[in-house]
Nucleic acid binder design. Sequence first.
DNA 1: CTGTTAGCGCCTTCAA
DNA 2: TTGAAGGCGCTAACAG
Lengths: 352, 352
Amino acid sequence: MNKSKQPTIIDVASEAGVSIATVSNVINRRKVPMAPETIRKVEEAVVRLGYRRNVMATNLSRRRSYELGLIIPHFGGYYGRFAENLEQKVHHFGYHLSIFSAAGMDPEIEQRHLEHLLQRRVDGLVSHGLAMSMHSTQQLVGEGTPLVIFNGWGWPNEIVKMAVNLDFAKASSEAVQHFLENGCRSVIYAGRSKGMGANEQRIQGFMTGLSDRIESTVHALLDAGELGIEGTLDEALRLSGDLRPIGIYTFNDALALELLALCHERGISVPGEIQLIGMDNEFFSKSSYPSITSFEMPVDLQTSLVAAFLMRQIGEELDEENTQLLEEYLPRVTGHELFIDLEMIVRKSSGK
Amino acid sequence: MNKSKQPTIIDVASEAGVSIATVSNVINRRKVPMAPETIRKVEEAVVRLGYRRNVMATNLSRRRSYELGLIIPHFGGYYGRFAENLEQKVHHFGYHLSIFSAAGMDPEIEQRHLEHLLQRRVDGLVSHGLAMSMHSTQQLVGEGTPLVIFNGWGWPNEIVKMAVNLDFAKASSEAVQHFLENGCRSVIYAGRSKGMGANEQRIQGFMTGLSDRIESTVHALLDAGELGIEGTLDEALRLSGDLRPIGIYTFNDALALELLALCHERGISVPGEIQLIGMDNEFFSKSSYPSITSFEMPVDLQTSLVAAFLMRQIGEELDEENTQLLEEYLPRVTGHELFIDLEMIVRKSSGK
DNA sequence: CTGTTAGCGCCTTCAA
DNA sequence: TTGAAGGCGCTAACAG
């Protein structure tokens, strides 16, 4: 055996009394016809030596890394679930997923991670709508590496081949309509400008939801990131005068929960005076008091689509299931953006 | 996939009119003396060609992967924060972190991930207290790869060089004492047997906290995983008779929140009739109604220690800061287990 | 069916 | 200071 501790394919070959090519063959290329006796000998040698193939050498030789990169803003809530889920999906295709958090939405960190991933020669990239400029992205990724975006809007096709988005606009519209049906006389959107595209989509849907009642209904777009949680509530109350109930649609459940806590503190009745709708359907939304109306995120579907599109771009064979999935959703692609519906989960905070 | 278009070190060499060894030298900024002129030529060629070093080739040649593996039960809450945090830490040492979720605590999945990580020739491993048998772990990891555990108890030194643990026992003891000081006449631990070692540590601390009042105080250890959330509350109420208030210490904040929701539903006053203490200090614990008393997890400190110990084992030079950190905590190591204190954050659910 | 051999892209002595 | 050459462990033609 070699001087280094870990046995190599050479050790296995000599142990089994065959050539290294044969060992390589039985290890991965089962298509080549081989004598069962040879296979047995090799497999036994592998076990006896505790041989473990070296992925670095394999991939260098194959000229593919079989690695995919994922960039998300952080590991919490939805993004964490997304990452965990995607890892499973791509594993089925034989790929490894390298996950990076961009520390919120820091363009520089994004860039650093991207560069690193490219040095690793990842075969494909998945990212949330980047905060870094499209120009930098273009330069970094170039034409080389397939890139699929999720929850990113307005990216040119030259950079991003496909964007798999949750339809926040539609959901937001539904939220507003839900408020109006519930008799809300004032509706507020408490957003986060740092949410970038996702925030803009919500604003757009919010306004659409108001539609013909846009004149007759008090409404406003607030930035909770800027106003702070107290400021947001104050402003909502001020703008609404004595109109009740007020419907506040928040950027996410976390924000809704914080507003709820503040309402408790001030003795404001939810849903009596204020109704709340969040987004993400986090664990705590069901168990908070009162429970918070929210939108369920179809993470599983989204990661399936992301994986399927990416695999197709890379040139991987898709199985029956994934082919069908793509065929089903392809018609729903506009340009290169796909929209997935969200389901509203109505709970106590919106008066049910 | 025109991967062939990616420039190599050879392209850079000929572009700069030097040998590949020289290029390698300037890229790695070795101690080898070099003419400033040569450095400039090479650096210019690198930029001009858009050269990006191939990590696979580099690491194969170096016979180190500069990659570390992390196995966690899932990406949510504490574990997600841990992963994100550790990634940052090891990055400073020039290491890449590959993160895997073991889908709860599935031994088979753990094993699969471990095997994969070993095939990638990771230079070190970090894992939560594994659910898989010590025997399997021993066989897989052998003597080869440094392994640091976090929140794992009772692992033999031959397998695990260091365990960096949160002191759940001590915290649990404090929780019980807090209940007793608050006048609780019955104290219950609502645990999760699936929590393995972490659960056992809590039980141990729970009993310790009772100490001399163990005879005079109604107490019980419940398994919320088995009884379900309703069953747990029912049982707590039944065991306590009309003793009030009841102190329920839960395995984590999520469980506390669910119990809280149930109390609301049934009109049971918290903290009047039931007091609650959780663990993890999740985001929602502060904003729930009432807010939940919990323990803050010192993730940052824990990952720092994990990283420092692992780096030392790998033979990496530690900087001043990390050396100091180790020196500070080394005295607190028992055997090869280190304990980190948790801080109780007292909130409304425990009567404050 | 099995073996030979030329790479994959980079690092690292050792000479020059 | 720089360059030539021999690996690192494995894959994939191409012979035999």
